[in-house]
Amino acid sequence: MAVRVALVQLTTGRDLEANLDLVRNGIREAAARRASVVVFPEASMRAFGNSLVDIAEPLDGPWATAVCEAADEAGVVVVVGMFTPGNADTVRNTLLVHGRGVHTHYDKIHLYDAFGFKESDTVTAGTEPCQFTLDGVTFGLGTCYDVRFPALFTANAAAGAQVQIVCASWGAGPGKAEQWDLLVRARAADTTSYVLACGQSDPSAAGVDARRGAPTGIGRSAVVGPYGKLIERAGDGPEILYADIDLGVVEEARRTLPVLANRVTL
């Protein structure tokens, strides 16, 4: 049996309630198309380039609770980027996962201190990989800059993940789109997993003002098969991609190309 997943590419802004409405609308539309798992980008709670410490809340706070209620009402699992309190005057860049008996979260491990941006100034890094299972399919989680670090995705696969979810708000710039495309395909090939990469859409394509220099998204969400072949790719504006996850494809790939079984710890 296949599990249908929706990747909701959107652009969020400063206003939490407006962003929550975008998430609710995406959940409703994806559920109407029979998706079981609905994935949203990193920073869905509030876009980068805005203050984050003042809106960070625990996983049972009002914004997170509203998302959980929407997931429960629709009967789906939601994966959504938000911000929870970190150490001192920082936040954690968190993926909330909730619905159909699943409730967990992942805190971004690799912080984006690159291309002139310094995420570690405002964000406390996570320390532990995270996976969840629905209908016999195990999903591993990663956030944006994490996609440059293969060991996280190998750890997810070693823990049973057949699907890797990457939620992002990818920074624009020369060569950045090409790097994103390469990296999401590479993580599929080196773990023989599906990769579901859901990014913020380009603010200019969504008609949203964004702070210049902040990593606010380029679109190009993607579904990649376990050999690294691109299956679907979004454009730069708001869009929903759908993928039907067939575990038989993963099993066949892992028999044919047993990179996980053949790997050597150096």
Rank of each mutant, 00 (worst) to 15 (best):
D60A: 06
W63N: 01
T122P: 00
A47D: 13
S51D: 15
K118Y: 11
D113W: 04
C130H: 02
G101T: 09
A70D: 09
F132C: 01
V78Y: 04
T65P: 06
A66W: 00
A64V: 14
S36N: 11
D135G: 00
M45S: 04
D107M: 01
G49S: 06
E29N: 11
G116S: 04
T84G: 03
P41K: 07
D135Q: 09
A74E: 06
E73Y: 11
T94E: 09
V37Y: 13
G61N: 13
A35W: 05
A31T: 10
A66I: 01
P62W: 12
C68M: 14
H105M: 02
P129F: 03
Q131E: 12
G136W: 11
A66Y: 01
G136P: 04
E29I: 06
I55N: 02
T124G: 02
F83I: 00
I55L: 09
V76A: 14
N87I: 15
G81W: 01
A56D: 08
E42P: 00
T90L: 07
N50A: 14
T127K: 15
T122C: 00
T84N: 03
D60G: 05
L52N: 04
D113Y: 04
Y112V: 02
M45C: 05
T122Q: 10
A74C: 13
H110D: 05
V38M: 12
I109A: 05
V102P: 06
H103D: 13
V39F: 03
D121K: 14
F117V: 12
P41A: 07
T94H: 10
P62Q: 10
L52C: 03
R33E: 15
T124I: 03
E42N: 10
F139M: 08
V137F: 03
L96R: 10
G86R: 02
M45V: 02
V77F: 04
A31Y: 09
L134Y: 07
A64F: 05
D60S: 11
V67Q: 09
T124C: 06
E57R: 13
V78E: 01
V77E: 05
R100M: 13
S36G: 15
A70M: 08
L95C: 03
K108N: 11
V53R: 15
F48Y: 14
G101F: 09
Q131Y: 00
S36I: 00
F139R: 03
T94M: 14
V78D: 02
A71C: 11
V77G: 03
G126N: 11
G116F: 04
V78L: 05
V79K: 07
C68H: 08
P129H: 07
V80L: 07
T133N: 09
M82Q: 08
P58Y: 09
V39Q: 07
V37C: 09
I109R: 11
V53G: 05
